[in-house]
Design a protein around this nucleic acid. Structure first.
Lengths: 192, 192
DNA sequence: GTCTATAGGACGATAGAC
DNA sequence: GTCTATCGTCCTATAGAC
């Protein structure tokens, strides 16, 4: 059984699973639904994953890793100013949430459905992503762009961004980039 | 069958259901768990509610109604300034989320599990609550306390507040009131 | 209003052929 | 690596006695 590999095949199956998990939630997504989406029968699914939990683990690992990579790239490419870094981080976060609309959303919204071992294994990855955020927030605080408690500011900002998943309409007039600008303008009191 | 009444008995059962829905999520809360919490057998539960869906509907109706009542009371009792109203609204919101820790949380986090008819029936109540928020945000914008798009500001603020459910520790050093102060300070740029 | 008992179905997962 | 077939379990909901 191909457990714990990361073949292109498994990656593709993971991608398809993420889509269903976002649409219906983990608990309501059956292995039969997953198999149908993948074009195989439900029994065949267990050749690729040990059990349903392992699919969730794969999706969340993929989603967090991807968010981490994209955020790092965004920070590398932008100006070194505290404001530019804040903008870049918010934009990257929203794009992984609202444009991909898949694995990163599952990582945020289905985290509680992980069993304890998987949560333990993935918490380091999640912590690394949050550390990136806190570093950017620290810079903004040091630059006097924003004020307040580092821990709370980081969580309020991430909360505002994470909640967009619930109301954002991709067919509407605003892009993820617009949202990032508006949020940063709101907390820094500069014009959008 | 006592469907659609609001006896004290049914209210109490609804309150107990809310607790389980918060702890395990709606999908993972079985009717057997609900019945046990209520001190009856699972078959007896259907004397009080037509089906499991109706329990969720009752919880979410209760949670939203309660949040609405508490928010209105908080607005009535506070100073009439835009800042005081913003504070009062945020504090009321957090207290229904973090102190009760039950029905309002279910209303926010299990909304998608409602069937279409129930969602239709409850959307007016939810809209009334959000209208309260938007009125308060409007005042703050008019007073120059904050800047930006009314729709976006309201959703960012509610998102930051709603997400607290995921990380807030009631045993920690901060009260819901502290959180409300810090958030308002962050977006108005006044000291907490 | 609560009980016992169970119907009837969906679910996750396995076995073994190909 | 995929199939068919199915096992055993758990679930929501019902029926009928008390």
């Amino acid at each position: 059984m191909n457990v714990m590999n990361d073949s292109p095949r498994r990656k593709e199956l993971t991608r398809q699973a993420a889509q269903l998990f976002v649409q219906a939630g983990f608990d309501r997504t059956t292995v039969r639904m997953l198999a149908q989406e993948m074009g195989i029968k439900s029994g065949s699914l267990f050749h690729h994953f040990r059990d349903k939990q392992e699919i969730l683990t794969a999706v969340i690992e993929e989603g967090t890793q991807n968010a981490l990579i994209i955020a790092k790239a965004a920070l590398d490419q932008c100006d070194n100013s505290a404001e530019a870094r804040l903008q870049a981080m918010a934009r990257a976060h929203l794009e992984t949430l609202l444009t991909d609309r898949n694995a990163h959303v599952v990582a945020l919204y289905e985290w509680r459905r992980l069993d304890p071992e998987a949560r333990d294994h993935l918490s380091h990855l999640r912590d690394a992503y949050e550390a990136l955020w806190e570093a950017v927030i620290d810079d903004a605080l040091a630059a006097g762009l924003i004020h307040g408690d580092r821990f709370l500011v980081a969580r309020f900002v991430m909360g505002a961004l994470n909640w967009t998943v619930r109301w954002y309409d991709p067919a509407g007039p605003r892009s993820p980039d617009d949202l990032a600008h508006e949020l940063i303008a709101m907390i820094t009191h500069r014009s959008a």
